[in-house]
Simulated assay, not measured.
Amino acid sequence: MAEELTPTPETAVIEAGPVSRWLSENGFDNTALERDHLGVEIVQVDRAVLLPIAAALFAYGFNYLQCQGGYDLGPGQDLVSFYHLTKVSDNASQPQEVRVKVFLPRNDPKVPSVYWIWKGADWQERETYDMYGIEFEGHPNLKRILMPEDWVGWPLRKDYISPDFYELQDAY
């Protein structure tokens, strides 16, 4: 009897969603990732093509940056900058959503800022910079927003070692 093969996450085929197909049809290099638990399409892009793809998605109707954030895959692994985009229109009963992810090497976490496309990225990119150390090139005011400006390190990285204390220099 032939043994039945069950697909594993490594061997499962991921079907490209409508946004990934549209990007590919228009010459934009991307990789479809597995949809999230709510069925939102996730597209991986290279940091070198993030701005052209973001501008194309804006022109395609994704006019609202619902969320920009980051996360750490673990010590020695990549950092991820993600963008949750929504197509907001008056005649849609359910807005279309897509999440764009850019995987960045830990030793060079730089990605272009999307501030010039979606102004709402301003403080969200600053928070991601402050917590993970992802540098958003071209951001008009990239500086710490939650931690003191002289803080050393990136507190939400999984390899961050918390200092024993932090001395306030100008406390009254």
Rank of each mutant, 00 (worst) to 15 (best):
residue 71 Y to L: 10
residue 95 P to A: 07
residue 167 E to Y: 12
residue 128 T to N: 11
residue 160 Y to G: 03
residue 90 D to A: 15
residue 96 Q to C: 00
residue 171 A to E: 14
residue 168 L to M: 13
residue 65 L to F: 09
residue 170 D to Q: 14
residue 74 G to M: 04
residue 159 D to V: 06
residue 161 I to D: 11
residue 167 E to K: 14
residue 70 G to N: 01
residue 125 E to P: 02
residue 17 G to E: 09
residue 124 Q to P: 02
residue 111 V to C: 04
residue 92 A to F: 09
residue 90 D to T: 14
residue 57 L to E: 02
residue 125 E to N: 07
residue 140 P to V: 11
residue 103 F to M: 08
residue 154 W to D: 02
residue 10 E to L: 13
residue 25 E to C: 09
residue 109 P to V: 05
residue 148 P to Q: 00
residue 80 V to W: 10
residue 99 R to L: 10
residue 115 Y to R: 08
residue 35 R to S: 14
residue 153 G to H: 05
residue 84 H to F: 02
residue 139 H to P: 10
residue 154 W to N: 14
residue 13 V to N: 03
residue 117 I to T: 01
residue 95 P to K: 01
residue 139 H to S: 08
residue 156 L to F: 08
residue 129 Y to T: 09
residue 6 T to W: 12
residue 48 A to L: 11
residue 156 L to T: 05
residue 48 A to G: 12
residue 89 S to I: 10
residue 17 G to R: 02
residue 4 E to L: 15
residue 10 E to K: 15
residue 90 D to E: 14
residue 164 D to L: 12
residue 117 I to Q: 08
residue 78 D to G: 10
residue 119 K to P: 10
residue 33 L to P: 05
residue 47 R to Y: 00
residue 120 G to L: 10
residue 132 Y to A: 10
residue 123 W to C: 00
residue 138 G to D: 00
residue 29 D to A: 14
residue 93 S to Y: 13
residue 31 T to D: 12
residue 115 Y to N: 12
residue 45 V to P: 08
residue 163 P to C: 01
residue 151 W to T: 09
residue 89 S to H: 11
residue 60 Y to D: 11
residue 104 L to E: 04
residue 5 L to C: 06
residue 60 Y to P: 06
